[in-house]
Structure formats: structure tokens, C-alpha cells
Simulated scan of single mutants.
Amino acid sequence: MLNQPRLDEILRRLSQDQRILVADLAQDLHVSDETIRRDLKHLEEQGKLRRIHGGAILPRNNVEQPLEVRSKIKPQAKAQVAQLAAGLVREGMSLFIDTGTTTLALAGRLTGFQQLNVVTNSLDIAQLLAQQSSNRIIVTPGDLRRNDNALIGPHTTEFALQFHYDIAFMGIGAVDLEIGLMDYEEPEALLRRTLVRRCQRSVVLADDGKFGRRTFVSTLPFAAITTLISNKPIPGDYHARLEQANVDVITPRMPPAD
């Protein structure tokens, strides 16, 4: 079982020193190197730090990590969000599926459908659905962003304007209580602002690690979207703000109390 006071001390030292070493932490906290490595892995999955060889550093909040790195963070949480999102889809729908690790997990859930019209700016999502289903797949044009095989830029946004979607599924960089939905780069923010104007239902997929974070670009206020899906019941202050903005919040059902 993870020791919360030890985790808090690790984060305190990281905030103070910007960089921490496994060997130093193990000696100072009187635990094994393996225990510290397990703690760092847990904190990385929470988005609190970034592991490096021999230790960890602070995450770079204004720079999004490559898809390969992000896919290893909170995979179970993303799978839960994807499962809930797939429950909104019906055969014959027209969808836009944005780039991202959670939306890629969603695409994996949609391979059982056969009559969807899917527009995407993710080469990975397009390939997955094309190889494993007979759904119609349309790939946007745009500039290729190599760290996640995403197509972005003005050509992408202009192309997305040609269609109307039953649902637009979107990832997000961060969810801030005061600012709203935030991203790392302006091109993806512009695309998401376009999508909410071209769909019947705009669905943001945000695992619990996205809440309480702040990135570089203010993308959308809460009131601009119709639905937010997360893997856990979201904090009460966020829930109140989303409810005030008439956003439908979907999370897993909690088991009844004994």
C-alpha cells in the first residue's frame, strides 16, 4: 500500500529542488530503492512528475509529452473514460474523433461498429479503425505533428467545418476551475472551438489527472460543451461549476454503500 505522507514529502522535495534522485530519497526516507521507484511511478501516473533515469523532475506543464509517453500515464483511467464514451455511440452516427491517448482508447472500443462515419485528425485512430472495422473513415488534411501523428493547423480546421457531427469527441490538456478547458497549443484549441459549433453533442474526455491543472492556452469555457466524461466522480467545486454551465457529467457509477 502506498504511503501518502511519503508521497507528500517526495512532492515537497521535488517542488523545492526541481529534481530528485531515487537513491537520496530511499536513504532519507528509510525505504528501499524499489519502494521509491514505485512511488515515482504512481506520481507520474497522476501527472505530478516525470520520471528520468535515476530519479524524477517536475512535469513541463506548457509542453505536451509525446503520445508514447502519455499512453503510459493512467491507462486504466483512460480505458474507463473510453468505455463510458463508447456508450454514447449508435450505428449510423457521424463522429469527429480528436487526437489523443484517451480518444485512441475510444477508437479501440468502436471497432465493433460497422456503419459509422468517422472524421479524425489522428493517423493512429484512422489506421486502427480502418484495419479493424468497416466504418467509413475520413482523415483531415493538415500539418503532421510527429510526436503524436496528429494533423493540425488551418487546413485541418477548415476541413472540419465542412461536416456536421452527431458527436465530437475531444481530448483536453487541462481542466481549470476558473479558466475552464485548456490546451498546450493554439492549433488544437482552435480545432476544438470549431468542433463545438459543428456538432449536436460535444464530449470532452478528461481523466481525473486533468483536473486542477493549468496549461498555456485557454480553449473553451465550460458552458461551450455539452458533456464531460471522467473516470472518477469529479471534485465537488468542479461539479458545481459544470452543473451551473449545464454540462452533463458522466462518471462510473459508484457501488452502493453497505
Rank of each mutant, 00 (worst) to 15 (best):
N121C: 05
V139N: 00
G209K: 08
A107R: 06
L49R: 13
L220K: 09
P233N: 14
A130Q: 11
A224F: 07
C199M: 03
D207A: 01
T251R: 00
E188D: 15
Q200L: 13
I137K: 02
E178V: 06
I229G: 10
N61L: 15
P141D: 10
L151I: 05
S71I: 01
P66D: 13
G142S: 04
G209M: 06
S71R: 13
V196G: 04
E68S: 08
Q127Y: 10
A82W: 01
L195P: 09
G47V: 04
D166A: 00
R198N: 11
V247P: 10
M182H: 04
N61K: 14
G87A: 07
Y184H: 13
L58D: 00
E9T: 11
K41C: 02
R253C: 02
R201Y: 09
R198T: 07
S202W: 12
G55A: 08
R253L: 09
D176W: 09
A189I: 11
L106F: 10
T101Y: 06
G209D: 05
A85Y: 13
K72T: 14
R90I: 07
R213C: 07
L144G: 04
L220R: 05
K72Y: 05
R192I: 02
E68K: 12
I152D: 07
R37K: 15
V139Q: 04
Q80W: 00
F169K: 11
Q16K: 11
R146C: 05
L84F: 13
Q131E: 13
I73K: 00
P75W: 05
Y165C: 04
T227N: 12
M93F: 13
L40R: 02
V196Q: 10
K210W: 03
R241W: 12
I179G: 01
R19P: 06
G55Y: 06
T120P: 06
V119H: 02
Q244M: 09
N135G: 01
G173Y: 09
M170F: 04
T120C: 05
R201T: 15
G209R: 14
R193I: 07
L151C: 13
H42S: 12
F113K: 01
S32Y: 13
R201G: 00
G92S: 04
K78L: 00
A160V: 15
A126I: 08
L220Y: 09
T35H: 10
D17E: 11
A126Q: 14
I179K: 06
D148Q: 02
A150S: 15
L128E: 11
V89Y: 00
G153F: 14
S94A: 13
V249M: 00
C199F: 03
P5N: 11
A160G: 01
Y238D: 08
S133I: 09
I250L: 14
R136N: 10
D183K: 09
V118P: 08
D33W: 07
S71W: 12
L205C: 06
E243N: 14
L177T: 10
Q200D: 11
L220A: 07
I36Y: 03
R136H: 03
R197W: 06
P255W: 05
V81D: 04
D183Y: 04
L128M: 14
D208Y: 00
G112R: 09
R90N: 12
A223Y: 06
L95G: 12
E45Q: 13
N3T: 13
V81G: 08
V217S: 02
